[in-house]
């Protein structure tokens, strides 16, 4: 069977990503600030206070974040595909949660960057820095070649759910599929609200991000409660947000269909024992074969495999 369609597909996706990079970067612009009411128009002896502008993060630090993102994905691919080590992947997951989650407060977020990219494409007055574009593009490109390495051990939202998985139940296959469609609905809604004109625009994904409140240790009470509910449910249903709601996960799943490599259940030495399928909390092993578009790179199948334990630990 020829690999050609896959190669062409990957090339098309990469071209599309490059094109959006070029388009979204279009123009630097100045935000008009003279529309705010001035001291004269307010009257009554009002004094304009000294403007307090929080300094943006240094540019080199932003670049460093992107480099850290790329490096974390590289390590994730290496740990899962080469070392097949769940132990080290868990270490990476905790590290990512600490850095991208609690230190950067959930703001190296390819999931949210989706909306910025959409707005930059739709609105000629809105442009995004290269850092945001890179944040959006990198995980998709990695998914084109290796599958959803971003989801395993890198994404802070995934990491917090990955670490709370306690005693996962297997969601019935049909229910799993049906709920999985929700994320495309959410993706559509997020795009719909992002392309509205500037004043009506809303970034749904960020507004209804259930876990960012934990990273910042503050937030709207209803979102904190919702996030807590997600985590409690996540103890028994593996990573519910990732599987059923994450819009970026939908994009990654599409890219993963073209992937060159991915998590495989070693065909040559398998026992048909089904331990891996029983261990996978995400329903990503069907008929003893890994389904790459659902695979969240957690390496549990390797950790539970009697044939793998002797090989790499």
């Amino acid at each position: 069977m020829s690999r050609l369609p896959q190669v062409i597909g990957r090339a098309c996706v990469i071209l599309a990503l490059l094109a959006q990079t070029a388009l979204a970067q279009a123009i630097p612009y100045q935000r008009p600030v003279d529309t705010a009411p001035q001291a004269d128009s307010i009257g009554g002896g009002y004094k304009v206070p000294a403007v307090q502008k929080p300094l943006p993060r240094d540019y080199w630090l932003q670049v460093l974040d992107v480099v850290a993102l790329a490096a974390a994905m590289g390590i994730s691919v290496w740990l899962v595909l080469k070392r097949r080590s769940r132990k080290w992947l868990t270490a990476l997951t905790i590290g990512s949660l600490a850095y991208f989650g609690f230190y950067r407060e959930g703001c190296i977020c390819p999931i949210g960057s989706l909306q910025n990219v959409v707005v930059a494409l739709a609105d000629p007055k809105y442009s995004i820095p290269m850092v945001v574009t890179a944040t959006f593009v990198l995980p998709l490109v990695v998914a084109l070649y290796f599958g959803r390495a971003f989801c395993g051990g890198v994404c802070a939202l995934g990491a917090i759910q990955e670490l709370v998985v306690l005693k996962p139940v297997q969601v019935p296959r049909r229910l799993d599929r049906a709920l999985g469609l929700l994320k495309y609905v959410y993706l559509g809604l997020a795009i719909l609200f992002a392309v509205k004109p500037a004043l009506a625009r809303d970034f749904l994904i960020c507004r209804f991000d259930p876990f960012v409140g934990f990273f910042r240790r503050t937030g709207a009470p209803h979102m904190l409660i919702l996030g807590g509910a997600f985590l409690v449910v996540g103890m028994f249903v593996g990573r519910p947000y990732c599987r059923y709601l994450c819009p970026y996960g939908g994009l990654l799943a599409w890219c993963t269909r073209l992937a060159r490599r991915g998590v495989t259940i070693t065909p040559n030495k398998e026992l048909d024992c089904g331990l891996c399928a029983g261990a996978c909390p995400y329903g990503a092993i069907e008929r003893m074969r890994a389904v790459r578009r659902n695979c969240l790179y957690c390496a549990r199948c390797y950790a539970y495999c009697p044939r793998e334990r002797g090989v790499a630990s």
Partner: peptide
């Protein structure tokens, strides 16, 4: 957050020991 992490660590230990050794395939 620290308490939740401790809880999960201990609870995982509990669950791990309860895990049956038979394959779950069937």
């Amino acid at each position: 957050i620290a308490a939740a992490a401790a809880f999960l660590t201990f609870a995982k230990e509990l669950v791990k020991q309860e895990k049956p050794s038979m394959p779950v395939g069937c």
